[in-house]
Amino acid sequence: MSGFRYSYALNQWRQSPTSFVRLEDHERAFKTLSVSGFRAVELWAGTGRWSNLGRPEHLRLNYGSSAGFVGRLAECGIDAVSSLTWDPSAPAAEEGFDLRSTSRPADHARILAAVDPYLDLLTELGCDRIVVRATEPAGRIGADLDVGAVASVLERIGSAAKDRGVRLAADIDCLSPLRDAAGIASLLDSTDPDLVDLSLSTADLVVAGEDPVAIARRHVDRIGHVHLKDSHFVDSENAYLLPGAEVDMLQGNAGRRIERWFFEFGSEAGLVDAAAVLGVLGESDYSGWVVLESDQSPEPATSAMLNAWYLTHIAAAGFRAAARTEEPAR
């Protein structure tokens, strides 16, 4: 029987470039999550002084140190940073807007250099999980993906992470050329289980036309991280292959004009069976994090509260019991 823990992703609080910058706004999100029963948060990598939880140097500057940040979380009733998500192909000012691809071996050394400050940060935060986007969108890579190259750099990051006590989980999102069952299997088959885990993203699997329960069962021994979120839609027209799929597909610029794909749990149109996914994890030895998200929600606080309600009353009777009940430090 597993003993996984719940966490909540902070990404959606930063909806526009100037939102979620002031520390009092961070504090309100932490308190909202804490009182909703989530005792851990997931960070996401970003760039610029306004993405001030997304860069190690800004986080330290804002909170004095990593320990200062952990202390502030504790005061708000958050016990841990569960994880950090990082996209090696996302350009960052602090890295000279370097354009890198996990599929290009020539970029791998720079990818390893870029992840290093994050691994340092995670060590300081007492966080043992980095979730790495396996590839950039299919429409950007083109037809010839070198899975071996992707596997190779993930293993190298995984190895560097392991040296710091951090494990890597590969995030295969709904725009990835590896998004279907065969793609996922090919990447897992090409990587060392000692270095690379799978991040199971339920909504992305549904969008990709896959059954997250089946994928969870098939790869249960490789799951090292879970993003539990819902979607109302399947990309049945392969819009993910569009060159600008991040806007064309995920923001409704083209095709079916769907402007929001991801939702909190509990709506009638939801396609993810959260209870079944949690059931698979519960029957396994999985002891990592299950991270819920407000991804794409116009109301991140509302979505967090509704997700908490859904876990408590529908999907996971143990959710509230799993939440720490003693008082947080003040």
């Binding site: 309100r28 308190k31 909202t32 804490s34 009182v35 109301e299 606080a301 947080p328 003040r330």
Partner: peptide, 20 residues
């Protein structure tokens, strides 16, 4: 302001400050 967030923050305060 946001009612949902205010409601959560107030309950956080009730639980973590006032009940103590």
């Amino acid at each position: 302001g946001d009612h949902a967030e205010s409601t959560a923050i107030a309950r956080w305060y009730a639980k973590n400050v006032l009940e103590k």
